[in-house]
Design a protein around this nucleic acid. Structure first.
Lengths: 260, 260
DNA sequence: CGTCCCTTGTCCATAATATGGACAAGAACG
DNA sequence: CGTTCTTGTCCATATTATGGACAAGGGACG
C-alpha cells in the first residue's frame, strides 16, 4: 500500500458522478416544484447537453422526476427510499429537540434548525411559537445557497474566513436569484463575526427580520444554525439582545449534547 | 426535434452514473451497518477497482459513509438531506394508513407495507398488533431483493411472467445470501399467482410464516404489498384463509384510494 | 402570421475520461 | 510463514462522456 498523502487530493475518475450529484443538489433546492433545465445549467455551470443527459438518465433510474405540465425536474421518489437505509431521526435532531422546545416557549416566534450541507443551508426542523404573527415561509426541506439567509451567514461567520470566501465564490452564480451578490454576503458575514450571531434586517420575506446562532461540531466546524424569524417590529434592539442571548445559550447546550 | 422512438432505448453516455446508483442500492440494503466492499463487488458484478473508486468519490461527496471499525460502507447523511426536497409522508403512506389501521386491529399480528423499488422490496410502514407474540425482525427501511420475502413474491406474481423472470434473473447473485435460488423463487411466484397472494411457510426468521397481497397502481403495475407475519402456529389453514380475505379486501381499497 | 427570443432536445466527431488487469499490503488463521 | 481472505493503488488503454452546432416547439408582440 502506498503512503498516505498529506494534502487531500480529490479522487480522479468520477467526473460524471460528481456532476450528477451537483445536478441533484440544485434539483433539491427546487423542492416539489422542481427546476427548469436552463436553471440547472446556469446554477451548475455545466453545458446543456451534459445536464440534459444526466437528468434523463436519472429519470430512467427513478432518482429524478419530471412534472408533465411545467417540464420542470425534481427529486424523485427513489431518493427517500434510499434515505430509509439510515436511522431516523438524526442524532442532531434528537440532540437539538429539548433546546428548540425551551427556546420556542421562551421566545414565542418561529424557530428554525438549519444544517449546512455542502454549499447549502437546509432547514431540518421548525417550531411555531405562541405569538399570533408567525413567519412560516420557510419550511422543513427548504434549501438555499449558504449566504442568502441569516442561518447561512451565521454558519459562514463561524468557519475560517478563507473557507467562507471559497463557498461564497462557488455560490456566486446562484446569488442573483436571491437578489444578492458576493460583496454583500461577505459584508454580512464580517458583521456576524463581530456580533457573535448572524442577522438579516431584511429577511427573504418582506418585513421580516431573522437572527441566527451557529452550532459547531466537536471538531470546531459549524454544522448547523438556530434561527428566530419574526416581523421586523417585534425584533427591536432590546429584544434582539434578549433573543440572541437565549439562542446563544441553547446553541452551546446543543454543542455539548453532540459532543458528549 | 426527432420523432419519438417506439422502443425505449436506454440513454447512452452515463455508465458511471448508473453504476454509482447500482452501488448505492446495494449499500441501502445494508442499512446502518453497511456492506463490505467485496460484497458490493459481488452483488453488482462490477470490478473491484471500479467499485472502490465509486464508493470513495461518494464518500468525498457525503453520499456514502464509512464505519471506522468495520470498514463497511453505508448510505451517508446527504441522502436524507436530498430526500427532504420531497413532501412527506408519501401519497401511498397516506392512502394506505386507514387500511393498515383497520387490518391491524382485525388481525392482531404484525403488519407491513412494502413497496417495490427497482429490483428490491422496501418496507415503508409497520404496525404492531395486539397479540402478545409479534414478529418484529423486519423494520421500516429493510430492503431485500424481490423474491426473498413473501411481499416480494406477491409483487412478482402480480406482474407479467416475463418481467418477473427478468427481475429474478437480475437478482440471482444476491439470492445466495438469503439461502434461496432462481428456481425456488420462480416456484413460489407461480404458487402465489394461483393462490392470489404471496406465501412463505418458512419466513426469513425461524418459525414464522408470512402472507402478502399485492397492490397495483392504476396502470396495472404492482407497486406495493401488504404483509402479515406471525409465528407459524398462529397461521393454520383456516386462519390463513381469514387473514388473506382481510388483506385482499384492504389491498383493493388502497388501490382505489391511489386511483381516485 | 412573421419575427424575435425564450425554452428543450439531439447528433456525433473528438478529447477526455473511466476502466480493470496486475500488483501491493494488511489481517486472520493454523 | 505459507495460505487465503480482505482492501487499496497504479496507469496504459479503449471506452465513454463531452459539448459545439443545429433542430424544433412555444409564447409575446406588432
Amino acid at each position: 500500500m502506498r503512503s498516505a498523502r498529506s494534502a487531500v487530493v480529490p479522487r480522479q475518475g468520477a467526473q460524471a458522478i460528481r456532476r450528477a450529484l451537483a445536478v441533484l443538489r440544485i434539483l433539491a433546492a427546487g423542492r416539489e416544484h422542481g427546476v427548469p433545465l436552463a436553471e440547472v445549467v446556469r446554477a451548475t455551470g455545466l453545458t446543456r447537453p451534459t445536464v440534459h443527459r444526466i437528468v434523463h438518465v436519472l429519470i430512467e433510474e427513478g432518482i429524478v422526476e419530471r412534472h408533465e405540465r411545467t417540464l420542470r425536474y425534481a427529486i424523485g421518489n427513489q431518493v427517500p427510499e434510499l434515505a430509509l437505509a439510515r436511522p431516523r431521526p438524526s442524532r442532531l435532531l434528537v440532540a437539538a429537540n429539548p433546546s428548540l422546545q425551551r427556546a420556542s416557549a421562551e421566545i414565542g416566534d418561529t424557530l428554525f434548525l438549519t444544517v449546512r450541507t455542502g454549499n447549502d443551508t437546509l432547514c431540518v426542523d421548525r417550531r411555531i411559537g405562541v405569538y399570533p404573527i408567525q413567519v412560516l415561509s420557510i419550511e422543513v426541506g427548504a434549501r438555499r445557497p449558504l449566504g442568502v439567509s441569516s442561518a447561512g451567514v451565521a454558519i459562514l461567520a463561524a468557519m475560517p474566513a478563507s473557507d467562507a470566501r471559497k463557498i461564497v465564490a462557488a455560490n456566486e452564480k446562484r446569488f442573483e436569484a436571491y437578489r444578492t451578490d458576493v460583496a454583500t454576503v461577505l459584508g454580512e458575514v464580517t458583521a456576524a463575526r463581530r456580533l457573535g450571531y448572524g442577522l438579516r434586517e431584511i429577511g427573504l420575506v418582506q418585513g421580516t427580520k431573522s437572527l441566527s446562532t451557529w452550532i459547531k461540531t466537536p471538531d470546531g466546524q459549524p454544522a448547523a444554525a438556530m434561527t428566530v424569524s419574526a416581523v421586523r417590529t417585534r425584533l427591536g434592539p432590546r429584544r434582539e439582545q434578549e433573543v440572541a442571548e437565549i439562542l446563544l445559550r441553547e446553541a452551546r447546550l446543543i454543542e455539548q449534547a453532540i459532543g458528549g
